[in-house]
Write a protein that binds this DNA or RNA. Structure first.
Lengths: 202, 202
DNA sequence: TAAGAAAAAGAACGACCGGTCGTAAATATT
DNA sequence: AATATTTACGACCGGTCGTTCTTTTTCTTA
């Protein structure tokens, strides 16, 4: 009963990695099967269509992101420390090259920017979740008094996310851009917080 | 002699638009030919291969960007005003929906983030040019005394670009994110400049 | 251990891909 | 007006795409 499950996750892990190289729509079943040493038709025993596999791949990438980025940050104490930890965990995800193409969602989101359909919709949902998480952490920091009461939550969330996205974009000069992304957010938060001692110096 | 030239630009204009929807590698010669009402083989009279057409498409997109974004900004007086005008021109390019998929280079850059080859190399070059332009305008502002002497040029260029990229990413909530991108850069520049009167209030 | 279900392989399909070829019209040059 | 050259076409190639169907292997369970 669990053999199928093992296969499925193995396939999806490879699919996530492959999608960051060839894109989520450029992901071909032949290539995927070959890389796994599996027959192409065997994949259809688990998903009825490519689109279903793409949707499952998105969920797998979401889990990976939750484990490697969100979970470590949530182990930090609430407030600006947790907020900055989330940003740093994200950057670490890039520098550690967990995925060959860098970031599954950045690649996929741009790829499907102008499209419609189930895949595009699901991607939007996940991106929305991410922004909501950022806003939640910011709101918590406000409630703790670590950020001033008038903080524009959405605006700050946008700025933090922007630094992360841009770090990913400049993949070929990754180290420099990750450093810039860290500095940008650190300064922004240190300038805004009521207690700069909560955050590292530069 | 100019009939061919007319055809070429017509093809490339369509190719630029199509590439923002399907991606630069997802751009298929059949679809391109069909949308133009032209035979696929006719395209090979102008470019020997798909890759050559892709490279020509990049140059065409670069021209479009130069006309619609860079040129208007350069009509503003040197310094922080020109710098902010460049950012605003970029955001206008997105809101006016000049291209269906939003931004040719953002889409393509992410698509080719993990790849090698002539197309990926050319894309990197153009992205590099863009960053250099940003840094040049910042440097000019420093020389004019509109930004303080110690300004970290690369860091500021990264932050401005990040806001633009992120605005593009959140395509489905475009208006809100463009506003956030404008606000982020405006505040950043107003905080840094020696003469806030040069910039609009929020 | 036999029966049944789940998992995987294999072969084949129609559609589309990038690309080539020979040819015919449109244009330029003489 | 005759000749080159550019521009474009239709037919076709080998290959890959996603998908389906049938068959075989593997595992689970009664």
């Amino acid at each position: 009963m669990l053999r199928g499950e093992r296969t499925r996750t193995a396939v999806l892990d490879t699919a996530v990695a492959l999608a960051t190289e060839a894109g989520l729509s450029g992901l071909s079943l032949s290539q995927l099967a070959e890389r796994l040493g599996v027959s192409k038709s065997g994949l259809f025993a688990h998903w009825k269509s490519k689109e279903e596999l793409q949707l499952a791949t998105i969920d797998q990438a979401r889990k990976l992101w939750a484990d490697r980025v969100v979970a470590p940050a949530l182990r930090q104490p609430r407030g600006v420390r947790r907020l900055f930890a989330l940003h740093e965990a994200r950057l670490a995800f890039y520098t550690e090259r967990v995925l060959p193409g860098g970031c599954f969602f950045a690649v996929a989101e741009f790829e499907y920017a102008g499209r419609t359909g189930a895949v595009a919709r699901r991607l939007s949902e996940v991106l929305g979740e991410w922004l909501i998480l950022l806003e939640r952490l910011i709101t918590e920091a406000v409630e703790l008094g670590e950020l001033p009461a008038g903080t524009e939550v959405g605006q700050l969330a946008f700025e933090i996310d922007a630094a992360g996205v841009a770090a990913m974009l400049h993949t070929r000069l990754l180290d420099a851009s990750v450093h810039a992304a860290r500095t940008a957010v650190l300064r922004r938060l240190r300038a805004a917080t009521t207690d700069p001692n909560l955050l590292p110096e530069e």
